[in-house]
Computed example of a mutant assay.
Amino acid sequence: MQIKPLFDKIVVKMAEVEETTKSGIILTGAAKEKPQVAEVLAVGPGGVVDGKEVKMEVKVGDKVIFNKYAGTEVKLDGEELIIVKQNDILGIVE
């Protein structure tokens, strides 16, 4: 199954969380921070949103950084995904 986002929505998959620090300390579940870097899996077509023309600036395969608590979490075929609006994306990681 696939998700086809509408308007200015983007489907992303979170990057893996590191379980050890650079010095080798193993982190517990409570000590891990929610990652803010994700890979773009699908991009909506853009168009007119709230009366304004929206041009999509990201593409499938981009690594992006987004607001910490942005988006809606969904589980599809056992995979955890997040659907965010384009204006919640802060930048593209190169």
Rank of each mutant, 00 (worst) to 15 (best):
E73M: 14
G46Q: 04
M14P: 00
E16N: 13
Q86R: 02
S23W: 11
L6C: 08
L76D: 04
L90I: 14
G91T: 14
E57M: 03
N67H: 06
Y69V: 02
Q36T: 14
D8W: 05
A31D: 02
K34M: 10
I92K: 15
T21A: 11
A42S: 02
G91Q: 13
E39P: 00
D88R: 04
D8E: 11
S23E: 14
G51Y: 11
M1S: 10
P5V: 08
D8Q: 05
D50S: 04
I10P: 00
K55P: 01
I83C: 04
P35Y: 12
D8P: 01
G24L: 08
S23I: 14
A15H: 14
Q36I: 15
K22H: 09
G61L: 13
L27T: 01
P5M: 08
I83F: 00
I82A: 10
E18P: 01
G46S: 11
K9D: 05
P45F: 00
V49L: 03
I82S: 04
E57K: 14
T20N: 10
I3A: 08
K4E: 12
V64A: 01
T72C: 05
M1P: 09
V49I: 13
E53W: 08
A15Y: 07
L27Y: 07
G78T: 13
K68L: 12
I89V: 11
P45Q: 08
V84A: 02
T28W: 07
T21W: 07
L41C: 09
L41A: 07
V84Q: 00
K22A: 10
V11P: 00
D62M: 13
K75D: 01
P35W: 15
V37C: 14
P45V: 00
I89W: 04
V40H: 08
T20W: 00
V48K: 08
K34E: 15
K32I: 15
V84T: 05
G51Q: 06
Q2Y: 10
G78Q: 08
K55C: 01
E79A: 03
Q36F: 09
L6T: 07
V37L: 07
L27F: 03
V48D: 04
A15M: 15
D62H: 11
K55Q: 12
L81E: 02
G91M: 13
I89N: 06
L76H: 06
T20A: 06
V93K: 07
S23K: 14
K68S: 13
F66L: 12
I10A: 02
G46N: 05
K32D: 15
E79R: 14
D8K: 06
V84L: 06
K63Q: 11
L6Y: 01
N67Q: 07
G71S: 05
L6W: 03
A30Y: 06
V84D: 04
V58W: 03
E19M: 11
I65F: 14
D62Y: 06
I25Y: 15
V74K: 14
M14F: 07
K22I: 10
L81M: 01
K9L: 04
E18F: 09
K52T: 05
V74R: 09
G44Y: 02
V49A: 02
V64L: 00
I26S: 14
V93N: 07
A70K: 09
K52C: 05
G78D: 10
E94H: 06
K52V: 10
